[in-house]
Design a protein around this nucleic acid. Sequence first.
DNA 1: ATCGATCATGCACCTATTGTGCAGGGTAAT
DNA 2: ATTACCCTGCACAATAGGTGCATGATCGAT
Lengths: 310, 310
Amino acid sequence: MIDARLITLRVFARCGTIGATAELTGYSPSAVSAQLRELQRVLGMQLLAKDGRGVRLTATGRFLVAGSDPLIAQWESLRAAAMEAGDQVQAHFGLGGFSSAAAHLLAPLAATLRSTHPLLEVQVLEAEPARCFDLLIAERIDLAVIVAMQSDTYGEDDPRFEQRVLLDDPLDVIIPGDHPLASRQTATLEELASEPWITEAAGSAYHSLFTAAFTAVGVTPRIAHEAVEWETHIAFVGAGLGVGLLPRLAPLHGAENVVRLRITGRAKPTRRIVAAVRRGSIASPLIQESLRILQVNANRILTARLEEDL
Amino acid sequence: MIDARLITLRVFARCGTIGATAELTGYSPSAVSAQLRELQRVLGMQLLAKDGRGVRLTATGRFLVAGSDPLIAQWESLRAAAMEAGDQVQAHFGLGGFSSAAAHLLAPLAATLRSTHPLLEVQVLEAEPARCFDLLIAERIDLAVIVAMQSDTYGEDDPRFEQRVLLDDPLDVIIPGDHPLASRQTATLEELASEPWITEAAGSAYHSLFTAAFTAVGVTPRIAHEAVEWETHIAFVGAGLGVGLLPRLAPLHGAENVVRLRITGRAKPTRRIVAAVRRGSIASPLIQESLRILQVNANRILTARLEEDL
DNA sequence: ATCGATCATGCACCTATTGTGCAGGGTAAT
DNA sequence: ATTACCCTGCACAATAGGTGCATGATCGAT
């Protein structure tokens, strides 16, 4: 309901380049350029200025973008209230999420919504957390399930988003089946400090979580291998290349020669899984229902995995 | 910046019929019908319901319209703040007003703005007060100069408008040059109670003002003739058909056989001239400047007429 | 310095949204 | 019953808004 060109401007404010804005919004760079020019024309404001080979926001542009946050929130809020008051059903619903955990939560959510709301067109986009926030701003998605990281999570008071903690997913340790500790049910990070560790590439989403867990107990792990997918982590461990961390939500599904141990002791690393929506839209019936479904599913998976693997 | 279809819905909420909405917005009835249908589709809300041979808003529709008031105000406010912060100039400015008084204020305003802002495209629409408010909602105009009437004026707390009193324009009495009181400078309404009065048609904008003036002093005037334009009033008086009221801002410009007397006594009827804008837009530099110009002009005309006619 | 990479923008072209005018159908008033 | 009014669907037209490619401009690397 808010002019699409203002949304585009807001996306640009985050991306900084026309090209990235185009990629995120789904338009071509020419279209974004034309949109922003048109926006300046109708508003009679100079919002962009050339800056090297790119463009940047003027002071007026930054002012407008910052001021548009409550405007968007107000619209979302109104829309949500009207939907609830009128018991209406919306036509499209965009979901975004990152990592297998999000995928395991989003897929059932989408399936449930499809069956309970046959008319609703549900679209799921897999994207990293930071990109999920961008997609929320770009209004490509309406709800994101992400793993909260200190780096790319936004404060409770961010005027653009509202977040709800879905669950704290504990990290387990996975070790080869022939490891001395394999018969144990639990282990501490200190016990495994000297092991060769399998982690993600430095700078990736989970790497900071990994290092944070070890700095909490004051040891520096030896990083032997790097893997991106949990599948790869598990395979590496199964091949005896080292040990690794695995979120409890990530399934082991009967991998050969791999044992999952719960972590005890001073540091019990967890990853926090949160749902994020555009501020104001949290009251929307569809989002409320989604949050409920997510919560139920998350808890069920969590307890099921607890019984299954340990 | 707010979707045009929502604006159309808001206009419809005031008009009640598609046809009137079309007339007010400048679209064809088909276009309005299509717009509202499209709006319902994208929002997934049922906003309209058939009602006899027309349509009416559903509860959801009324809810949405009412809730959109602060949204519009917020946008106007943001826009105004950005214009001021960025020292920007807008491209289009719509003015509306009613009656010769407004015309005498609006014309100089438009002329001044045209000279000080050569790039600004100023458009003036002459319309009755009630219609001016409609035009403000329809975003056809940005500033209206109207004569405040108890019937069609809106409270200070109306979420859609903000109003500033420009001036209180006293009503004078005009009598034929050969009238016994013609040599006087002032008169009271009581003295003229038995005269044949010339007024506007019952129900018209000024008629309520006319009756209010006389009920204040407890007499019931005899209405002899009705006229719409001030010109006609003056001509009737000049022809000796009766006496009438004339706002001080309305010029006599040397009419034959007509004398203007100030009204003294208990009841000194005035018409209040106010400027109305969409709520939030009052801080806009252009509107601030316009209000200043209006104020200066109004005061100047008022004092000039005082010296000239009496 | 030269070259290549990166970005934004203008242009030609195309699509599809969105407008108009008119005909039709349903409903209230005469 | 007839008339008048109001909304809507349809054929058609205008135009806003999209893409893709070529161009120009700037920065970094060779």
